[in-house]
Write a protein that binds this DNA or RNA. Sequence first.
DNA 1: AATAAAAATAGTAACGATTACTGTTTTAAT
DNA 2: ATTAAAACAGTAATCGTTACTATTTTTATT
Lengths: 131, 131
Amino acid sequence: MSLKHSKQRETIKAFLMGRHDHPTADTVYMNVRQQYPNISLGTVYRNLTLLADLGEINRLRVGDGVDHFDADTSQHYHFVCSECGCVLDLDMPSIESINDVASADFDGMIAGHMTYFYGVCGQCLKMRQPS
Amino acid sequence: MSLKHSKQRETIKAFLMGRHDHPTADTVYMNVRQQYPNISLGTVYRNLTLLADLGEINRLRVGDGVDHFDADTSQHYHFVCSECGCVLDLDMPSIESINDVASADFDGMIAGHMTYFYGVCGQCLKMRQPS
DNA sequence: AATAAAAATAGTAACGATTACTGTTTTAAT
DNA sequence: ATTAAAACAGTAATCGTTACTATTTTTATT
């Protein structure tokens, strides 16, 4: 199964690289469709999965029941707003050391952790009327 | 909407309290059905959601696309085996302080975090033939 | 104990995100 | 130019979950 070039995949990857809001498959579909009017949703899903398997993008599961995708594969953490549902990058140091904390009293092998933070984003905070 | 007693709900809660493997709705359904042969899957879902809303149980999302439920509502972390998919409790101290780390350079309000660890559980490690 | 309103139920249909299938088109190596 | 593998568009199917509806159960009031 040697990878063959595809304009659709290239376009999907390029679109993702231009976004920093971690779009869902459907958002990718809606947008890429403006360039490829009859790209199919299946193609979007297949390529997102392929790119994720290749490690070129990341699939984010932040508990809202929909997968989000991120072209920034460097190690970083995410924040999910409980009000508007937006997914933001957090500028914070790695907390890889929690793996060691978890490993201490565990008989299995810990390979990593998934962490995301939640709360209210800056924009939603601003919206709130001063009571 | 004042809560009324229901044997089905009681049974679901009791079943969950007797398990420490964080079953899915379907597993709850399969098991409770041995006691209530014609309980409906909808009733299981409705009550799991209700109990979770009441804070009597926790809904766990560990990235496998299926909700798991836990009657232990005390603060603790989970481990998910990448090989067998089992979900285990971890005996480790709280790492709530990572909320502060995340808050440091963030303009929103961080209410909490969701963390789970992944790797290979003790059982699956044992299964592996020494190479 | 009988009545009645609210809540919960069983059973089933609908939903949304994702994956699988199929026949056609594109890629890329010969 | 030929050809096999890969990717495609379009659509059907799957899976976990939620919503709907007519019936039953609970519980407060007589």
